[in-house]
Amino acid sequence: MFALSIWVLRGIIAVILISLVASTAGTFTVFKGATFFVSGIAHAVLAGAAFGIFITLYFFPFPEFLMTIFFAIFFALAIGYATHRSENVDVSVGIMFAFSMSLAVLFLAMIKEYASVAWGLIIGDLLLLSQEDVLWMSIAVLLILLLFLIFRRKMLFSIFDPEGAEAMGVNPYLYETLLYLLVGIGVVVIMKGVGAILVYALLIIPAAAGKRLSKGVLATGLFALLFSLLSGFGGIALSVLSGITPSALAGLIATFIYFLSYLKRGTVKVP
């Protein structure tokens, strides 16, 4: 019973951490309209995990989580740079998506029987997090929140009106890249809990639903926090009762909430 409690407790902490990322970096990613970026980074994280295991197996012990952070940062910077050059975030993400997935397949082939560890990141599990996982997640989320609080106004200005921001001396490219960095680190955090496939469910869907219901940035963030918490806690509760993996259940709840947001009358139609 105690063993179950500690796993559930870690899962609850992870949901709170994930929700904080969803309400900050996730919300701004939805504003930016760069949600495809999340999938791109998720694949880079998979490559990072495989590479981390490869280094540990053949050279020296290296924390897998740290390697995934490095990969997420590298690919976030690469996508930011490519977007700045080509001015099309979809093309930039698409190219990096293919590159990171190719690397992932390559590294997975090299680590053979240990590949299942990296593949675990595809599905993830909120109830299988170790003490070390939660510690790394907490550090990463603290970093995200700190940077977000300091630079949120300049990031928002850059997202809303890049030309106006530039005219004021705010470099939109710099703050767009910073947002990508925060999201990249955020994806690593969330993937630990819900996996690559469902990272979208807790990072993007709560913010997208929140945006439909609110008239302001703060309200969108608070809605995203609420919906993400509901999805995560709901997923854990149903998982404990049913034995089904919590990430899938959390994803279903998040999607359900999004569809419910359509029921609200007078949601703003965006041109």
Binding site: F31, K32, G33, L156, I159, F160, D161, P162, E163, G164, K211, S214, K215, G216, V217, A219, T220, V268, V270, P271
Partner: peptide
């Protein structure tokens, strides 16, 4: 040139 989807 403004991103008018941001809820402000």
């Amino acid at each position: 040139r403004i991103n008018r989807s941001v809820p402000l």
